[in-house]
Design a binder for these strands. Structure first.
Length: 744
DNA sequence: TCTCTCACTTC
DNA sequence: TGAAGTGAGAG
């Protein structure tokens, strides 16, 4: 059965809502808005143009008006708004004039992202959750200053492969594991006006990545399996659950809505930044990535060579001993076989997993790179201008001379990626991927639940020039860096026809109608509200409310607790799972999201615990896999980016309207814009991958590498020598390295 | 591969 | 000052 705004009450199910009524009294209107139609309310449908057309007695509270307008826009029967509309103070309503917006999004710290992306970005996921680094930050423009927007972010699988880091590169290691429950993170400041969003950098740094499927930092809402659009799980949380060794693509969404409850029937503008793609890992695989993180993440400052911490001391100790050894070794063996010595030493350390390995690499890195003594900014800027150049230089001296330190062959620049010894000792260097560098412009997909308006299609067309824009942006960072590929889709017309692979839009969506025939744009099972309950206070801001416990919120509620609550409410898990969307909203509220009668989340304590959500976890999660819309495994069309040089089957049936596909448009050829954009963009960029160098770790000085662990005892004997050597090394190391590199 | 603890950092 | 975010390293 389908649910529509015009006919919100599902025959035969309305009674099921009654249990909520007594508890939901304060939010009665909300339930009405959500679709509940009290039997005692006369049906009165608002004109399509909104409440402005109504002649309401006196003044109508703004919230109510907003809701009415929203309801009217979507065809909600006035009667469904419930009695609350009559109970609230009324005031004259002013028609809200909707200014057309033309959102543009610029990825902040793009250069940094590029640096990571070139090497194959890795994001550590832990049980307790780790933040992303670099943090996902964007700057928005083109928004209607007065309109309210909800900004969201989610992370989707970039493909259906599992990876392994082998021979210094990421390789496909099979089919992806079953997808984790999807979550969407709503920016804690949501909803906020366009003006507010545009006045600052929108950062999603609080989002955490985890591999803990039982993570409680979120809750799941189960939507009825027969629901028009939202079947399956939509969870909200500050943590996104990912599979280790799988590739992911963050997405950013702008939704013009003043209430989260309107998301289902609001227009989603989705932005993809290929350079933010990453592989989730439980432990870093590529040393270069590790080093980049250490160099750029303030919290990892303790691991920088410049530090004076214990680690640093330990590192230096090790380094010193290594240097001493190297020096002696040179004396003993002459200078000819350094390469082999280094190699052996390196292997030895690597195998022994001695801390010296990373240490050495780091230290040397500094020696050869700007990092030491140089501000991060400086180092960054250098890399920014030419990490390659920097690396290249190193390579000429170090890499070439240390051919194989780690498998590394005397990598030619062109092959540096593969040869780059940036990887962990265990398996090597950096992921060799045809790195699409940052050139790809972000892809923007705008899907509207409403009929696609002219304005909605506007951007796509506009984007036609995107490619050049992208280049421009690249060239002129800070200028109009955002030239996202904009592919706008009329959900109804396009989403269903051709799922956006990788975008999480189920093919089946199109055929289904949601609230008056408007399909939902969120990927089913992909709706997580930022801000676990515990995090809500801090994270969700106005969007989420604290629950009865005040500070306790719902964070403390686990599925079990919720299930109990549900049971108490007379709702079985099953029934809960089959609740219609609007009912689910109750559940949402019950989970700690205090929702205003008009759909917004109340900032006041709300104790009602209705429940059902509990069931959601189990029921919903299972539904994720079995429901056609949610069965990502079976239908999972995915975006494939070339960065990792993986096969890129491109779905050519994208239903998206392609108005402007930047660089990829050309490459896309027959592909529809979106697909082309997604698939092609990365590819189009794979350019200077060859230039990638093994900078830091590879920059190990040969001397340091040649030291063998077992020789450490000699350290003492050589201490004095060490010190003098070290002094010299700091200033001369570069030269020796070069000479050495060149000598062989 | 993953998990946990540790010492270090930022805020 | 303490909570929380880091990568290293051991298991």
């Amino acid at each position: 059965m389908s649910l529509s705004m015009r006919d919100p009450v599902i025959p035969g199910t309305s009674m099921a809502y009654h249990p909520f009524l007594p508890h939901r009294a304060p939010d009665f209107a909300m339930s009405a808005v959500l679709g509940h139609q009290p039997p005692f309310f006369p049906a009165l449908t608002l004109p399509p143009n909104g409440a402005a057309a109504l002649s309401l007695p006196g003044a109508l509270a703004k919230p109510i008006m907003d809701q009415l307008v929203g309801a009217a826009e979507t065809g909600i029967p006035f009667s469904s708004l419930g009695p609350q509309a009559h109970l609230r103070p009324l005031k004259t309503m002013e028609p809200e004039e909707e200014v057309e917006d033309d959102p543009k999004v610029h990825l902040e710290a793009k250069e940094l992202w590029d640096q990571f992306h070139k090497r194959g970005t890795e994001m550590v996921i832990t049980k307790s959750g780790r933040r992303m680094f670099p943090p996902f930050k964007v700057r928005c423009s083109g928004l209607d200053k007065k309109a309210k927007y909800i900004l969201l972010m989610d992370i989707i699988a970039a493909d259906d492969c599992r990876y392994k880091f082998h021979n210094s590169r990421w390789m496909v290691a099979g089919k992806a594991d079953p997808e984790m429950p999807k979550r969407m993170y709503i920016h804690p400041d949501s909803p906020a006006t366009g003006e507010q969003w545009m006045s600052k950098v929108v950062t999603f740094h609080k989002l955490k990545l985890t591999n803990n499927i039982s993570d409680k930092h979120g809750f799941t809402l189960a939507f009825p399996s027969d629901h028009a659009t939202w079947q399956g799980n939509y969870s909200f949380g500050t943590q996104t659950i990912l599979n280790s060794m799988h590739k992911y693509q963050p997405r950013f969404h702008i939704v013009r809505a003043n209430d989260i409850l309107k998301l289902p029937y609001s227009t989603f503008r989705t932005y993809l930044f290929p350079e933010t793609e990453f592989i989730a890992v439980t432990a870093y695989q590529n040393d270069k990535i590790t080093q980049l993180k250490i160099d750029n993440n303030p919290f990892a400052k303790g691991f920088r060579d410049t530090g004076n911490g214990r680690r640093e001391k330990r590192k230096q100790l090790t380094l010193q001993s290594m240097r001493v050894f190297d020096d002696r070794h040179k004396k003993e063996n002459g200078t000819s076989d350094e390469s082999s010595s280094e190699q052996a030493a390196f292997n030895c350390f690597a195998q022994s997993s001695s801390p010296a390995v990373s240490t050495v690499g780091t230290s040397n890195l500094k020696d050869l790179c700007p990092s030491e003594g140089e501000s991060d900014a400086e180092a960054d800027s250098k890399e920014e201008h030419g990490p390659e150049a920097c690396d290249a230089a190193k390579i000429s001296t170090t890499t070439s001379e240390e051919p194989s330190r780690d498998k590394g062959s005397p990598a030619l620049k062109a092959h540096l990626f593969a040869a780059e010894p940036g990887g962990r000792p265990r398996d090597g260097g950096r992921p060799d991927k045809a790195s699409p560098d940052s050139r790809h412009s972000p892809a923007t997909i705008s899907s509207s639940t409403r009929g696609l308006g002219a304005d909605e299609r506007r951007s796509p067309g506009r984007e036609g020039a995107a490619p050049s824009k992208g280049e421009e942006a690249r060239a002129l960072p800070g200028k109009e860096a955002f030239a996202p590929l904009t592919v706008q889709t009329d959900a109804a017309a396009h989403l269903g026809q051709g799922p956006l692979p990788g975008l999480g839009f189920a093919p089946g969506l199109a055929g289904q109608q949601f609230f008056n025939g408007h399909p939902l744009f969120l990927h089913p099972g992909q709706f997580a509200m930022g801000g676990a309950f515990s995090g809500m206070a801090a994270g969700m801001g106005p969007l989420l409310a604290t629950v009865s416990g005040a500070s306790t919120g719902v964070s403390g509620l686990d599925s079990t607790a919720m299930a109990s609550a549900a049971a108490a409410q007379g709702l079985s898990g099953a029934s809960a799972a089959t609740l219609p969307f609007h009912l689910q909203q109750h559940v949402l509220a019950s989970q700690g999201l205090a929702m205003s009668p008009f759909g917004s989340l109340f900032p006041y304590p709300y104790t009602y615990m209705a429940a059902a959500a509990a069931a959601s976890s189990a029921a919903a999660s299972s539904s994720v896999h079995r429901h056609p819309f949610l069965n990502l495994n079976s239908m999972r069309p995915r975006l494939r980016y070339s960065p990792y040089s993986i096969p890129m089957p491109v779905p050519d049936s994208s239903s998206l309207l392609t108005t402007a596909l930047p660089s990829m448009a050309a490459a896309a050829g027959p592909l529809d814009g979106k697909a082309a954009a997604l698939a092609a963009s990365p590819a189009s960029v794979a350019v200077d991958s060859g230039s990638e160098l093994n900078s830091r770790s590879s920059t190990l000085s040969s001397s340091s590498v040649s030291l063998s662990p077992k020789l450490c005892p000699e350290k003492e004997a050589a201490t004095s020598e060490l010190q003098s050597i070290q002094r010299l090394v700091s200033g001369l190391e570069a030269k020796p390295d070069r000479s050495r590199s060149g000598s062989p």
